[in-house]
Simulated assay, not measured.
Amino acid sequence: MLVREMMTAPVVTVPRTWSVKQAIHLLYEQDITAAPVVDEKGRMVGIVSEMDLLRGEFETDPGSYLRPVALPGSRPSVGVEEVMTSNVRTVQEQADVLEVVDLMITMGVKSVPVLRGGDVVGMASRRDLMGILAHGDERIRDDVLAALRDSLETTLWQVTVRDGLVELHGADVDDRSARIAEIIARTVPGVAGVVLASSGASGTSELP
């Protein structure tokens, strides 16, 4: 599966000139945990997360736990640029989802900006990945069947799914047609892998 097929889009961005409080309101209202920070031309210059914003708004001194850093009017609000992460790891929209998973595991991040060339076009989050995994086998099977029906003229394919692994069963199907069917099946959300199997297995679901 490609990143563009699972990312959240359109992407919500934070202007780098905003204050931490403005960014907090945006993330809260949009129910997101992180957002790219962009300059005046819309180019990404960093990323800011809920934790970055909380650190910017509250002191870390245990003696002032959850106490605002300053009373209203005592000093200007902290800016997003002061708390954002400027060294951002990104992925291209045509990358495999496994690249996102690897980044999240190795870097310990919850969200990864998705680029089309140099432009931010989406965000890939742990929630997005969990949504893919939450697809039940029955729904995946139905989606694969629908994708094959919509893309191919033949109805020779049968489909079984177990733990996200799709098995395609086709009678009298040449290698080219089998490869096309495999590619189509891999585009369906929730598909963990595709196996081209012999036809006639039990428990299959024939294309209507």
Rank of each mutant, 00 (worst) to 15 (best):
G79K: 15
G79W: 08
E82D: 14
E82C: 09
V83M: 04
S86L: 08
N87R: 15
R89K: 15
Q94K: 10
A95I: 05
A95P: 06
V97W: 00
L98A: 13
V100P: 00
D102K: 15
M104L: 12
M107P: 01
V109P: 02
S111A: 13
V112E: 03
V114Y: 04
V114I: 10
V120K: 00
V121R: 01
G122H: 02
S125A: 14
R126A: 07
R127H: 14
R127L: 12
D128H: 05
G131E: 05
H135M: 11
R139A: 11
R139W: 08
I140A: 01
R141M: 12
V144L: 06
L145I: 06
A146E: 12
A147D: 05
R149M: 09
L152W: 00
E153V: 09
E153T: 15
W157I: 09
W157Y: 15
Q158G: 10
V159E: 04
V161N: 00
R162S: 06
R162L: 10
G164N: 08
E167K: 13
L168T: 02
L168A: 06
H169A: 15
V173W: 02
S177D: 14
I180W: 04
E182M: 13
R186W: 05
G190D: 03
A192R: 08
G193S: 13
G193R: 01
V194T: 01
A197D: 10
S198D: 15
S198W: 05
S198I: 07
A201E: 13
